[in-house]
């Protein structure tokens, strides 16, 4: 590429400075989501359920004819390096269709399938079949199962009932085990770099479940007895702090960009009219500064209480975090 071309490309890249109409995009998002909800609620769901019912019935029929469940169970032992391996994946899909009926049972099966992918990875590595593309394909499958679990966990309601908290704790502990297995595999692998995405996704999932437990505890005013309740408060604090810092960074950048920006309205003399910064930006910066100070005070209280504080104290700290979260979300909306 010549210097002249490089110069032209640099010029073109400056067009990235154009700011989209965020207000419009945000308002249209609501329209789009309403439309999707309506579409999902109507026909397709009916057909999907009808199809699933028919498929389940078909599978049961096959089972009674001596092929069904035997086949599904048999597929579970097919090794990864054989041409029959895709049949195993189909077997898992059938199992998911037949044996899952709510978010919890689906997440349960997907955790099992994610573990299957790791066992297969172990087989590959142990048998020196460590072709990076095969490893990558299995890790993609692993990520896909985790992504499915993500959807199921997001769907679980945090309304108080006798099972949800225990269930979330179980998912958290199973994810912890799976992540541990993944770390060991990566450590022994000849291509450790291929594992990086899956490891990041596993950490993200653990954080997501931990956040869901925190939401449940805050909403229902009870704590899980896993000894992690103070740690969860600290994790939430760290998440909010980093969100606040990112927001402050974007605000500062948009303020400094704004100084170079002009509106293309002309004054009577034909000169471009410089538009003042929107008040929202400076207001939001003030809010953020005050929020950061309150977060600092929160940390001082947390340090003082974490050794000997009561559940009542911890609930107050939880409530403050929820309030900070709401204010942060409001500031983020203003910035958009």
């Amino acid at each position: 590429m010549t210097d002249k071309e490089k110069q032209l490309i640099d010029h073109l890249r400056r067009l990235k400075q154009v700011q989209p109409d965020f207000a419009y995009l945000k308002s249209f998002k609501r329209v789009l989501e309403n439309r999707i909800v309506l579409d999902v609620k109507s026909e397709p769901i009916f057909f999907f359920r009808a199809f699933r019912l028919a498929a389940s019935f078909g599978v049961f029929l096959l089972a009674f004819m001596g092929l069904g469940f035997g086949m599904v169970v048999a597929t579970q032992n097919i090794p990864v390096d054989t041409f029959l391996y895709p049949v195993k994946l189909v077997g898992e899909k059938i199992q998911l269709g037949v044996q899952s009926f709510d978010a919890k049972s689906r997440a349960d099966l997907k955790l099992k399938f994610a573990l299957n992918r790791l066992s297969e990875l172990k087989d590959l590595e142990e048998n020196n079949l460590n072709d990076p593309s095969k490893i990558k394909a299995l890790l993609d499958g692993y990520n896909q199962e985790l992504s499915g679990i993500q959807n199921e966990v997001l769907r679980i309601s945090v309304e108080r009932d006798g099972e949800t908290l225990g269930y979330l704790l179980e998912v958290e502990s199973r994810l912890e085990n799976i992540s541990g297995e993944l770390k060991v595999l990566r450590f022994d692998s000849v291509v450790p770099e291929v594992y990086l995405d899956a490891e990041n996704f596993s950490s993200f999932m653990k954080e997501l479940v931990s956040r869901k437990i925190f939401e449940y505890e805050t909403k229902n005013r009870i704590f899980a007895d896993d000894g992690q309740k103070w740690q969860r408060a600290m994790n939430e604090f760290l998440r909010l702090r980093s969100r606040g810092q990112m927001l402050a960074f974007s605000l500062n950048s948009s303020l400094s960009d704004g100084l170079k920006t002009t509106a293309l309205e002309l004054t009577e003399s034909g000169e471009p009219l410089v538009t003042p910064q929107p008040e929202n930006t400076s207001l939001t910066l003030d809010n953020l500064r005050s929020l950061n100070q309150e977060l600092d005070s929160w940390q001082v209280s947390f340090n003082a209480l974490s050794e000997s504080g009561s559940d009542e104290d911890l609930l107050k700290l939880f409530d403050s975090l929820s309030e900070f979260e709401a204010r942060l979300a409001e500031a983020e909306t203003l910035l958009k």
């Binding site: 067009l15 509106a263 293309l264 471009p272």
Partner: peptide, 11 residues
């Protein structure tokens, strides 16, 4: 009345 810098407008 799209707000863009003069440089971007000319480009």
């Amino acid at each position: 009345k799209i707000i863009v810098s003069e440089e971007v407008e000319s480009l």
